[in-house]
Amino acid sequence: MRLRSAVAGLPSRTVTNADILEMIAAHSSPGFEGDLDDTLRTVDSYLRFSGSRERRWLDTGERPIDLLKQAAKTALAQSELRATDIDLLIYTGIGRGFVEPGGSYHCAAALGADNAHCFDILDACMSWTRAMQVTESLMATGGYRAALIVNAEFSLRLGGAVFPHLFRLPRPQALASTFPAYTLGEAATATVLTAEDHEPWEFRFASRPDLAPLCNVPLEGYEGFCEPSDRLAANGIGYFTSFGFEMHETGLPDAYAVFDRLDIDPEKVAALFTHASSKRYWQMMADKVGLGEAIHHVYHRTGNIVSASVPAAIASAIEQGALQRGDRALGWVGSAGMSFAVFSFVY
């Protein structure tokens, strides 16, 4: 399987850390229990510590499907393929407009990918990585020749799972389950893959389902589909709840353990792409495994763009010349679930 192209579509509105603080202040002032100014200073400190500077959100009149269509059309053009050449289309990630049918069908209809078999993969921030593994496996059977993997991570809309509910802090302690929301950005990505004789991809995965309560967007009636936990729906039903600090700390040994299962010489790696949850965190991890100079960050420019993190970083590296044909690259992801993965491929 060969990665033919990767393209990211970012919305036009730039939201800085200062903007985030202003929004929290505006929505939290009525009824806040505690010292709001001190809490804002804490949020500012956390953002700067993580390496956050800005993120991109949809502006008035912008639609996720339009950004997704443009990214997909550009990716197809770069691959010298037409939409009708795609025989497998997978929609990945959390951001979506439909529970039924999958977002893949609506994307295929919008692109004119009339010959594509469609389905979705939903695995939190791991979604794109899972889709790549599934695609390689399907291509190995000889059933598919050209695949398009897409996502549209747009969750900051008014009345969505994040905004403005999570910007309305009731008390300082609420930061434990809400701070990751302030790092979120928005993006669409499109990745084109073809079944060719090429160096195989290698994937290593690990799961920690005991940590599933740490990051969720629960639906109405969720209680009947899981074991009880006081972490679930801590911010309310339908709203993003993420104990991000605990996830990073608790998941660190598992992230290193899964990386060690991939036998790779760091000196042969041209680029490392990670989940964009924190620039500082992933830089520290990359330094420890000898890939500190290879990591390609987008977090400081895009924020945490969920399952779009790795393909957006790949697109950025290709555009900047940091990833060229014949280079070996690694992906390294930690996700809600919790799950962990590392993968290797030659571009």
Rank of each mutant, 00 (worst) to 15 (best):
K288C: 09
V306S: 13
P11N: 11
G251P: 02
A124Y: 01
A336E: 01
A255G: 09
E196K: 14
A72G: 10
A315S: 14
D327A: 11
R171T: 08
F167Q: 07
V289R: 02
G51A: 09
I121W: 01
G303H: 11
L40W: 07
M247S: 07
P200I: 08
G303Q: 13
G142I: 03
P218K: 01
G321E: 05
S104A: 15
A109L: 11
D254K: 08
Y299Q: 13
L184F: 12
R130W: 09
A181W: 06
Y256E: 12
G31C: 09
F273I: 11
P164N: 05
Y239Q: 10
Y222K: 06
V192K: 03
E220C: 01
S307K: 04
L156P: 01
R168K: 12
C125T: 05
D114H: 02
T141R: 05
H117N: 10
A72T: 10
Y222H: 06
S137N: 09
Q320R: 14
A212F: 09
V298G: 03
L184Q: 13
N17P: 00
A329V: 05
H27G: 07
L148E: 06
L184R: 08
S278V: 11
L67P: 00
A336I: 04
A6Y: 04
S127K: 00
V7P: 05
A83M: 08
I86V: 15
H296L: 12
S155L: 13
Q78H: 12
F32L: 08
L211V: 08
G331V: 12
L21E: 06
M247Y: 00
M126F: 02
G290D: 11
G326L: 13
L330V: 03
R301Y: 09
R63I: 11
T16D: 08
P101L: 06
P164T: 10
T141Y: 06
L323V: 09
S45Q: 13
F243W: 04
E227K: 13
D66K: 10
D230P: 08
Y144V: 07
A329R: 00
S127D: 04
W128G: 02
D260S: 06
F273G: 11
R82P: 00
G112S: 02
R280P: 04
E293C: 07
S309F: 10
H106Q: 12
G251C: 06
L68M: 14
P218C: 04
A341H: 01
T274R: 00
G160C: 03
T16H: 10
W282T: 15
A6W: 03
E153P: 04
S339M: 10
F225P: 00
L169N: 05
